[in-house]
Design a protein around this nucleic acid. Sequence first.
DNA 1: TCGTGTGAAGAACTTCACAGCT
DNA 2: AGCTGTGAAGTTCTTCACACGA
Lengths: 211, 211
Amino acid sequence: MEGKIPKPTIKRLAVYYRCLENLIKSGKETVSSQELGTYLNIKASQVRKDLSYFGEFGKRGIGYQTRRLLDGIAEILGIKRTWNVCIVGAGNLGIALANYPGLSKGGYHVKVIFDNNPAKIGMKLQNGLIVEDLKNFEKVTKEKEIHIGVITVPAESAQQVADIMLSSGIKGIINFAPVKLSIPKKIPVEEIDISLTFRALSFQISTQKNQ
Amino acid sequence: MEGKIPKPTIKRLAVYYRCLENLIKSGKETVSSQELGTYLNIKASQVRKDLSYFGEFGKRGIGYQTRRLLDGIAEILGIKRTWNVCIVGAGNLGIALANYPGLSKGGYHVKVIFDNNPAKIGMKLQNGLIVEDLKNFEKVTKEKEIHIGVITVPAESAQQVADIMLSSGIKGIINFAPVKLSIPKKIPVEEIDISLTFRALSFQISTQKNQ
DNA sequence: TCGTGTGAAGAACTTCACAGCT
DNA sequence: AGCTGTGAAGTTCTTCACACGA
């Protein structure tokens, strides 16, 4: 049943997708919500609820056909299409992402990487990409039809980069800089805040001990 | 009032901390929940609720003393102490993290990086670290008193690495590999799943259009 | 009057429990 | 009998609304 889809559901769908790829590879043809849940450490009822937002994928008494479910999720998540990605910030992290095989495997193609540091502009990466001048952002991203912008610059310059992305018509942003960007709500943003994650972890470690 | 603290509250505390650092740097001595919320795009009531879990930091009619609040949060999050970190997986991402200034700034010191690839073992990073053989994991991490293990290997070997970490007495794990690890509940784990985040973003972009 | 601290209401997400298809 | 799909109950987190102190 269509309705409002919880955001966590979307992330789990992508997880189910991965798991199904493996199950199919190992020759499994059907799978129950119970099994899927056990593999992924998710409650069976959660699996069923997640899938039920998008229609009836399963057969009662039997479970889900792995192939059919995989295709269904691919459809929902738009996995079949590809996305053109640009990275701003040719530091260690930006370069690592540009070379990250997980992205291109998932259909996210890093087409260009920018920096404003003259020492970096023109530099050639492992994968053959050449660092472009941030000044040419709008021109280059329009030429290459970039959909997604990734921010890997220091906190101080992140908002500035975000503004350039917005005015150049980027459709969505992934922000690795440790700041809250102000971005109009109609442009989706996902934050990956590495030091925040370390904080959350070490807090858990500290409080663990007292129990 | 002490009670059960929502996990999102912890992450927000770290965000407040960062913001307070900046406010103090710019000479601000007090701040209201309203102001803090506006800077960070968080509701004022959320800010007050978050802080109230840990006691009464503010003064009615005035707001929060920035310095006092900063110290209070540092206390809660254990920001004053440092943490020793190891990374397993000397690929692009692992190396980028080892050199990531945000971590050491936050008190997370990458003391050692491991790999099992002979071509990589012995390699010297920008920051002087030398890639160690994964075989020596337990010995080296005990010597260096490592608290936190970071997994940056491919999905296939992530569980194996996690098992080594567990049996060597690591206190907490940050997992960048795109798999759900099975880990006893008493060991905290944080996941940073980059391709999942891209999926969530592109899903939002796709559905945006239909509205 | 201004702004906190907090019980109560609300929203979002998860889990239960069971009717109903295969 | 086995397993899905789903309303309803439960849980967790957020927002409201207001008493109260500075």
